[in-house]
Design a protein around this nucleic acid. Structure first.
Lengths: 337, 337
DNA sequence: CTGAAAGCGCTTACAG
DNA sequence: CTGAAAGCGCTTACAG
């Protein structure tokens, strides 16, 4: 679908029309004319001319000359989950507010796709790259370093750039506490909880398992390895893992700690197939989904403070200097208790 | 967080190191060297030098010189819903496959934000702008026309650029049919269906209402105005509208046609508050959410064929010429019947 | 108060 | 087989 390229006007066109020099037009158009003490009259004339001609500065040219693109990038695993989509949304809004142009790419938790996206963004000379939930954040930080771009890790921490993450351990501890409280309220109750979902090798899952175990220990409860199943996030994986787990079990566990709304989907599917209800157990989920909350007001969920996290990211961007190993943890909130 | 800008190498640096001219380096690096019959040896030397120096072409400079940015843009209402997030994801993947760089901005169904985002994207000289679910697509098409950028409407049609949308009328008709079938299967059943959600002024909602009415008419059922409530998409609006509707009603309607998963959230919330179950009614929803599907396997949903729609969009982009008033309708699929 | 000139990093006819 | 030169549309120090 070729477009008819009707040559957009440049500052030279405006200069000719305004009987001024391109330098003057440029100064007027980018606001630096106050410093140059250009006459109000001339400025006005140029401004309204620009308006009339539909002038819009060519950002490629400006970026090239200024050696600053005005672009800020983000990579994230996927959009179609409330946590990540909300991250993208807030990132964009914040960037816009600062006059930066946000570009976001999703990279499916695949290190190769992460690197490829970073390469593209760096080719467009992003000033800063935020790696969200990246499987290999350090490589990306290195690529940014080489290019002279700043970099920040979000959601999952790294060692070669400052990080903003949720306080996963404390979040998991409180959620587990809430689950145990709920269990204690019930007439007949066990205290066994199945932890399911996430990746054993990722920092957040490790921390959540630690918080989970800690909450149990504090109540004098032992935790068995077999009740912790980091089978990855995907719904199908969680469903299959639960299937396998239940093959050797006489009954449902008393409670479940589901390590993401993505995994929750698989869990609920398995329950439905077996004729169970979600309410047959006490269920807590790390991450929050409003539709799930509407369906099951009793479902406890950990809602990560996306707004605060994004705010912290931009504070780092604004800060003159930030230590590479800085890691800010943001407290999440428990919903539904 | 200032980054230390260690000056990335340019083709001039490589030229010096390779003892060749910048033109030659440029040709080698962008693949046009076959045509220039540069010696394999020289090409190899330059290529490995580029590798070693971590060279990456400055896309701003390339874009400026070529007068083509290699960027393709999309605006959409929001990310945090499965339909739109899936659109963004497929758009990005397809763009990447063609060597285009995708940039996406969400504009909250606000015409001013839509224009502002379009302005920014055009300043970065996007080659094509896809307006998804835009409230004011025609203004955006005009802006694109003035800039010599192509434009395409997705999800909601426009008059000044070709459009790709779901077959909303037929989708709504089939969903209504499925609802009526389900009602007929039940021992005691009414045939009243409440249509709720969406915007009366948007094309898709109008079409869906038409399909809804048509399905009823085909079975000899009348449809009353009061049972059609396009109260906007937002969950809170839907919840409030249902609240108001039920104030003058002795009992729940036999069935509901909920016009988006966003509205569904509010509906379910209202039901929960009143001690009702979703399964107390037959419910169909336009749009699809896998978590909702897991929770309620009986919930009927219309799943729009995002992959096909995006494929059609790119076919238009590739086509040498497309009539402005072309509108392709893609059949959606009914889930859960 | 304003303009001429250089340069950001590429690409591409043109000449050899 | 390869290079010198012009130019994409800006910005910015410099000179007046």
């Amino acid at each position: 679908m070729a477009s008819e390229s009707p040559k957009r006007p440049t500052i030279y066109d405006l200069a000719r029309l305004a009987n001024a020099s391109p330098s003057t037009v440029s100064a007027v158009l980018n606001g630096s004319w106050q410093r140059r003490r250009i006459s109000q009259k001339l400025a006005d004339r140029i401004l309204s001319l620009a308006q009339a001609e539909g002038y819009s500065a060519n950002m490629q040219a400006r970026a090239l000359r200024r050696e600053r693109s005005g672009i800020i990038g983000m990579i994230l695993p996927l959009y179609d989950n409330r946590y990540f989509s909300s991250i993208a949304q807030h990132f964009e809004a914040q960037a816009r507010q600062r006059g930066l142009f946000a570009i976001v790419a999703c990279t499916n938790r695949d290190p190769e796709q992460e690197r490829e996206a970073a390469r593209m963004m760096l080719a467009y000379r992003v000033e800063c790259l935020v790696s969200t939930g990246a499987t290999d954040p350090d490589t990306i930080s290195e690529m940014c370093d080489e290019s002279g771009a700043a970099s920040i890790n979000l959601d999952l921490p790294g060692h070669k750039a400052p990080s903003v993450i949720s306080d996963n351990r404390e979040g998991a501890r409180s959620l587990t506490d809430a689950i145990l409280d709920r269990l204690a309220e019930q007439p007949v109750s066990g205290d066994d909880i199945l932890f399911i979902g996430g990746r054993a090798e990722d920092h957040n899952t490790r921390e959540r398992i630690a918080g989970f175990t800690q909450a149990r220990t504090q109540r004098g409860l032992a935790t068995s390895e077999v009740d912790i199943i980091p089978c990855d996030y995907a719904a199908d994986k969680a469903q299959a893992a639960l299937e396998a787990y239940m093959r050797h079990r006489p009954r449902l566990p008393s409670a479940m700690f589901v390590n993401s709304t993505i995994s929750l989907e698989g869990i609920v599917r398995w329950l439905q197939l077996g004729g169970y209800q979600l309410d047959d157990m006490v269920v807590g989920c790390f991450d929050w989904d409003p539709l799930a909350a509407a369906f099951h007001p009793h479902l406890m969920m950990v809602r990560q403070s996306v707004e605060v996290m994004i705010a912290r990211v931009f504070e780092m961007i604004d800060a003159p200097v930030v230590e590479k190993n800085r890691c800010i943890e943001v407290a999440p909130e428990i919903i539904g208790v």
